[in-house]
Design a protein around this nucleic acid. Sequence first.
DNA 1: TTTCTTTGAATGAGCATTCAACCAAATTTC
DNA 2: GAAATTTGGTTGAATGCTCATTCAAAGAAA
Lengths: 212, 212
Amino acid sequence: MNLLNMKQRNLRSENKKNSNLKLISSTIKNLSKKGINELTMHDVSQGAGLSQGIVNFHFKSKELLLIETLKYISNEYLDSFQRSIAKKGNDPRKKIIGIVENDFSKKICTREKIAVWFTFFSEIKYKPAYHQICKERDMYYQSLTENIFDELIKKEKVKLSKKNISRGFQALIMGLWLDQLEDPDTFNRIQAKKICFEFIKSNFPKQFKGMF
Amino acid sequence: MNLLNMKQRNLRSENKKNSNLKLISSTIKNLSKKGINELTMHDVSQGAGLSQGIVNFHFKSKELLLIETLKYISNEYLDSFQRSIAKKGNDPRKKIIGIVENDFSKKICTREKIAVWFTFFSEIKYKPAYHQICKERDMYYQSLTENIFDELIKKEKVKLSKKNISRGFQALIMGLWLDQLEDPDTFNRIQAKKICFEFIKSNFPKQFKGMF
DNA sequence: TTTCTTTGAATGAGCATTCAACCAAATTTC
DNA sequence: GAAATTTGGTTGAATGCTCATTCAAAGAAA
């Protein structure tokens, strides 16, 4: 196999990847426009600029397409999350602030993406595949924030449960995301961020004194 | 119109009410079992012990049935909520504790009911009717808890925004509800309650000192 | 006798999925 | 390196299934 051969081989597989991506993007766009109930295969292929039967060729079925879509947004979120705490050094305060900034950033906290997330959340109970993906994401997030809160607890010299703080923190964020869905006119991500910072500050008043 | 007439008229309308209730109950049960996507009219009528076409007779369409179902669980929740703060006297601490107790009571905080709630939440963006009902519920809840937190803020003599605390409180509860969906094995409503109490305590340490 | 409620078979629309035919890219052959 | 062959991706019409909705007929209540 020479270089030319490799290039040629790549071209085909790039095309395939490209179609997959187009289809997943179209799924996200259409999900956020119509919800899971009204989403049709026709919408998806149309939105990707491809023809009717193509989704079944690439993803086998509608359900598998949806699972791949959930994996996609989950990875996208994780990437962004990891980047938000990388390069913050060892200061747990900076890390936790970074997480809040990320969760309510312009890129992550859009009404469209949140709508897609909640579409999947709402099906957790009926779709084991969704359940597993969401739970994995959750556990990763949970363990990372637990470590950060553990450091904060030690520095603050206060008796708090890292598990509880961590879960409360994440629940707060999910609830505020939901508010973005319910109340997009009078409530925005800037206010949501502020509420998160206040949560942190009320638990670790010494370390965040004067901040925010 | 004499008494006999009234009784007779009531019998028929009672029957009608009864069918409606049966159908709505069946909708809730089936929604919590299969999600909105797989819910069929057949499921609903079957579950109510009635026949196929009956839903269209009573509710005109599937969509209207779903709207009535949301109204029903919304009213059920509100009733329970109101009862949770009534008869707590004037102590805002007792009121807020009552609310937490209610939101995570055996009756309200079941995985089935939460699944139904999130089914509707996830469609807020696409269904104006759902949006309005959820928002109304939310605003009522919000204004009531704002008043309670306002009292607590004054008593604590602390500078906090009643709006932010209130929204954070509600978001926290919604997030913890979602956890009941995602993580029913390792997380339960007792732990959720504890996290809420800790949230309150961290904001109003003087007033809740030694409590919980 | 009239009005209201229920039944369940029939209808037909909407939609996921299939597939034969086609096209383009990659590989092999000479 | 041109021609022939194989492999992979795409098309879109056809298929058939699932389901909401309709409605004539029947039953119950007023």
